[in-house]
């Protein structure tokens, strides 16, 4: 009997001991879970973009960008991309970007980036363009978290919004806001130097076969509107192609040519007496500027260079 009691007691004791151990263990686990949750809350970055929401565990380090404007944004935030879709031509970067850009791998054309190459770089963030990369979004997303922004068709203000999204994705939201503040200041200062902005100003990309006006909906056109000029080509289409007759009818008071090739259709048009009928030609206000500064580097650095050019050519003399 005594022996039996002893065994019972031992059993109960053991049970209590084990139960308490389990309980303790559970308590420990709960605590560590909570801690972990706190940590991830601090670190994860949530980005809403054109094709959904992307969550990053931590600030990305290896970044692949598929547009020149994204490289521009990265430079202002002092982040180096591992891969850039540069159309296989580093000359297409604006000087300021090229100077800051260190080693990177070219992943080919912006329109048809090399997916295998992107994959081999093992990025932890890809920044893509809505127009050009919508179709390969799933493929890109399998390689790394991908955010898609509407860049190609974006106007100036949209670009500024995109800039903040990129800054946030890089975990540099505060720096981004600061740099944007700085940008606004620079633009304001330059505006003072320009003075009167009553002209109609038309930026246009030219090549041997065509003259592509940048309309009021394009990035360059909307930038000109933003600083007070008027873009004479009003169109939902960002880059409509104009004929000479239409250009003469549009009659801009200043033209900024952004040639894509050495010889362009303007060489031909210059020989036509109609060319002389354009106000910009009569006022000697046809300027040639770098397409890589104006039309490709659609970012803070690009637009700062753009207003620098405008001050130089159209500022109060």
């Amino acid at each position: 009997m005594q022996h039996r009691m002893k065994r019972m007691f031992g059993f109960v004791f053991m049970s209590i001991f084990i139960l308490s151990l389990i309980a303790c263990g559970n308590a420990d686990e709960n605590e560590s879970k909570e801690e972990a949750l706190k940590e991830t809350k601090k670190e994860t970055i949530e980005i809403n973009h054109e094709l959904g929401k992307t969550v990053l565990e931590k600030a990305p380090e290896k970044i692949v960008v598929l547009e020149f404007s994204y490289t521009d944004a990265l430079m202002t935030l002092d982040v180096q991309p591992v891969g850039v879709a540069d159309d296989d031509d580093p000359k297409l970067f604006m000087d300021k970007v090229r100077d800051q850009l260190k080693e990177y791998t070219s992943i080919g054309s912006r329109y048809e980036p090399n997916i295998e190459m992107i994959s081999s770089l093992q990025p932890d963030l890809i920044i893509a363009d809505l127009n050009h990369h919508k179709d390969i979004y799933d493929q890109l997303n399998k390689i790394a978290p991908t955010i898609v922004l509407d860049d190609h068709q974006a106007d100036y203000n949209q670009m500024l919004d995109n800039y903040l999204v990129i800054a946030k994705a890089l975990g540099k939201e505060e720096e981004g806001k600061q740099r944007l503040e700085e940008h606004h200041q620079k633009i304001e200062e330059a505006k003072q130097k320009i003075g009167e902005t009553t002209l109609t100003v038309l930026p246009a990309v030219t090549n041997p076969k065509g003259f592509f006006a940048h309309s009021d909906h394009s990035y360059t056109g909307s930038f000109l509107l933003n600083i007070g000029f008027d873009d004479p080509v009003k169109s939902e289409d960002s880059y409509p192609q104009l004929g000479l007759e239409q250009l003469v009818e549009t009659n801009p008071q200043a033209i900024f040519l952004l040639p894509a090739t050495e010889e362009t259709i303007v060489d031909e048009w210059g020989k036509n007496p109609l060319w002389q009928e354009i106000d910009a030609v009569q006022n000697n206000k046809v300027f040639t500027v770098e397409r890589r500064d104006w039309a490709l580097s659609r970012g803070l650095l690009g637009s700062e260079k753009m207003i620098e050019d405008i001050v130089k050519h159209l500022g109060d003399q």
């Binding site: 159309d87 031509d89 297409l92 054309s109 912006r110 329109y111 048809e112 990309v205 090549n207 076969k209 065509g210 592509f212 192609q241 004929g243 894509a260 090739t261 259709i265 031909e268 036509n272």
Partner: peptide, 22 residues
């Protein structure tokens, strides 16, 4: 596609166009 930056308007031309003819 490989030379898109210099051939944008060739897409226009590839369908056939007389609008630039002088």
């Amino acid at each position: 596609i490989m030379n898109q930056h210099s051939t944008d308007s060739m897409m226009f031309w590839l369908v056939g166009a007389v609008n630039q003819a002088g």
